[in-house]
Design a protein around this nucleic acid. Structure first.
Lengths: 191, 191
DNA sequence: GTCTATACGAAGATAGAC
DNA sequence: GTCTATCTTCGTATAGAC
């Protein structure tokens, strides 16, 4: 309480997080062992487990910045009217996913096990609210399409196809508009 | 060479495949150990590994029927004109995925590791041809949307959301049409 | 508080007896 | 063809040095 917290702990912690992030993005979550992380950091497995309460906790820490951005986006869009919120989420979520695309691919190692990982329950909750905002309504059909749109984008992040960030962004925004934004039937005649 | 192949080998092999299929669909690929399979079959781990050259080979064997159906679909659609082939692939691929949806979810455990698994190179090839037929053209933008459509469908199979087979089929067909089938601009005036 | 050393059980895989 | 025994490496847990 008295002085600032010791800097040593935080320094080691963030070094572990940094190198774990790189290894997860490079080889995937399952394929990265605690020994791999410890070797790159230059410490022992036990040290990694002193700073993080198990391997899932390392992943949660790595994912935290992206998860926070999504949570902020959802909170912000939640105060907009449905159509504006939908548009905000399409561009905002795409931007976040593109920025962290190397990390997104590890989500697929994790999604099947999320039930047993309390660290990720909050992320699941945010994901459900995001889906609803993206859908623009509570219509089950529209909610289904929103989930489909999210799955498509996440899947594109761990596909072997090479794609620039700009191409991925354009693809995602185009796809989400086609899937979710109902074309105004006869609103705009050609100018 | 002389007589028919010994039936014993094939019998054990298909028992392993059958029970492995059920376990993979139920718990996922990563969460199913060779010991789990051996226990259900009533043999030892070593016996499983005698019949299959490693755990990925077990998975490849389990996935083979679905992979063959997709390969047949691709071969058949490849002889149609682009628009008809696209429609054939949309309904046919959706049908196969829905039928094997319990197994499709394990694909996501596998996709990231496909590089190191020669058993699956043929499946990757077929997937690329499927994508092109679904796209309907070689336009990179259209190919991107086709890949997005496939990823969305596969993702829907391992999502926690409950959905009937009919609902999943309707969702997939709707999504693929919106993503890929260009709406005829002014072709059909209201009747 | 921070870290190393060591041990445990389970995983995939292999060698060799029967 | 099937087994037991064994190997290596994984994630995890604990004891104790500094």
């Amino acid at each position: 309480m008295g002085m600032a917290t010791t800097p040593v702990r935080e320094r080691t912690r963030s070094e572990i997080r940094q190198h774990a992030m790189e290894l997860f993005a490079e080889k995937g979550y399952d394929a990265t062992s605690l020994q791999d992380i410890a070797s790159v950091v230059g410490c022992s497995k036990a040290t990694v487990l002193y700073h993080f309460n198990g391997k899932p906790a390392v992943l949660a820490s790595v994912l935290e910045p992206a998860a926070n951005l999504v949570a902020e986006l959802v909170a912000e869009a939640g105060q907009l009217p449905p159509a504006a919120a939908q548009e905000r989420v399409i561009t905002g979520f795409t931007e976040i996913v593109v920025r962290f695309r190397g990390l997104i691919s590890v989500l697929n190692d994790v999604v099947p096990k999320m039930d047993q990982m309390p660290e990720f329950h909050a992320m699941v909750e945010v994901g459900m609210v995001l889906t609803r905002l993206l859908a623009g309504s509570d219509d089950p059909r529209q909610l289904g399409l929103a989930g489909y749109a999210i799955q498509g984008l996440l899947g594109e992040c761990h596909t072997p196809v090479q794609r620039t960030d700009d191409d991925l962004r354009d693809l995602a925004v185009t796809a989400m508009h086609r899937l979710l934004v109902v074309p105004p039937p006869e609103t705009t005649p050609a100018p």
